[in-house]
Design a protein around this nucleic acid. Structure first.
Length: 273
DNA sequence: AGAACATCCTGCTAGC
DNA sequence: TGCTAGCAGGATGTTC
């Protein structure tokens, strides 16, 4: 599942390999992927546009175009952006949109579960009005984090996954962050003393930074890949996620799995308090 | 306010 | 072996 590190990896690939190119033609298949606007409107809005730069907040990805508008991408559960050298006659299964570039390559949007989205947004990107600061680039200080957590009464796991508080953290990295911070998923912000808050702040930064360096997590069932179809290696450094029954890397107690905030959650009962 | 649940969807898998 | 029911999850919306 693409979260902040996976989206950032794709953004960096796009920045390096498609910035400067021009979209010469576009095609949309099906009605699910481009649903904020009519496919015809989308196609005419991107056709002929030169790609100027890339940006990201949380799991939202944007490519600035030469008319000031942004090509917006959200991968949601299973979306993939793939740069393929071939033309669209050899599109793989679940390819819902193809942008042909003047470089001869094509940008394919592949998404089996069709939760992902492509759309054209304006320069101000109103879709981001309800999205909080980026959990990595805009994390700020420990004091900033305390302020952002505020007086919420729900468990830390739910708060970390709330994109209006901090954006980019999903089910995988929230578990990893709370393990590294040695905090239970159900702890509330007001229960955190100064050292605990500092650990949480550091864990957010550490876990996301390392996952970006490892080019994201590719778990066997929900295969995330980069712009060239290559898997990441961050799953190798996961301490708790999808490790139910396996020994904790710190204390060797078995990792437990619970349902929390509507999601499967993994933690060490001994290390996280 | 917050939690629990349904919704969108397909691929995988546990269990017959 | 082959089928199917259940599960998985990001964002959003509804209900309690």
């Amino acid at each position: 599942v693409p979260e902040l590190p996976e989206v950032e990896t794709v953004r960096r690939d796009l920045q390096e390999h498609i910035v400067g190119a021009t979209i010469v033609s576009a095609a949309v298949h099906g009605h699910r992927t481009v649903r904020r606007q009519k496919p015809d409107q989308f196609i005419s809005a991107v056709s002929g546009r030169k790609l100027i730069s890339t940006s990201r907040r949380g799991k939202y990805l944007f490519i600035e175009m030469d008319d000031g508008n942004r090509l917006a991408v959200h991968l949601r559960m299973s979306g993939q952006l793939l740069l393929r050298s071939n033309h669209h006659f050899d599109r793989i299964k679940h390819t819902h949109a193809i942008l042909d570039l003047d470089s001869g390559a094509s940008l394919h949007f592949v998404d089996p579960r069709t939760f992902g989205e492509l759309w054209v947004s304006t320069a101000s990107i109103p879709e981001l009005d309800h999205v909080g600061p980026d959990a990595l680039d805009e994390l700020g200080t420990v004091i900033d984090l305390r302020r952002r957590l505020g007086t919420r009464r729900s468990g830390l796991k739910a708060i970390l996954m709330n994109q209006a508080v901090l954006s980019g953290i999903g089910n995988i990295y929230s578990d990893e962050i709370l393990f590294q911070a040695r905090l239970r998923l159900t702890r509330t912000p007001e229960s955190l003393n100064r050292p605990a808050l500092a650990r949480l702040h550091q864990a957010i930064n550490n876990v996301l930074t390392e996952a970006v360096e490892r080019r994201g997590s590719s778990l066997s069932d929900e295969q995330y890949v980069d712009l060239f179809g290559k898997v990441g290696t961050a799953q190798a450094s996961h301490c708790v996620y999808a490790r139910e029954g396996s020994p904790c890397v710190v204390c060797e107690r078995k990792i437990e799995r619970v349902k929390f905030a509507g999601r499967s959650s993994f933690y060490c009962r001994n290390c996280q308090r």
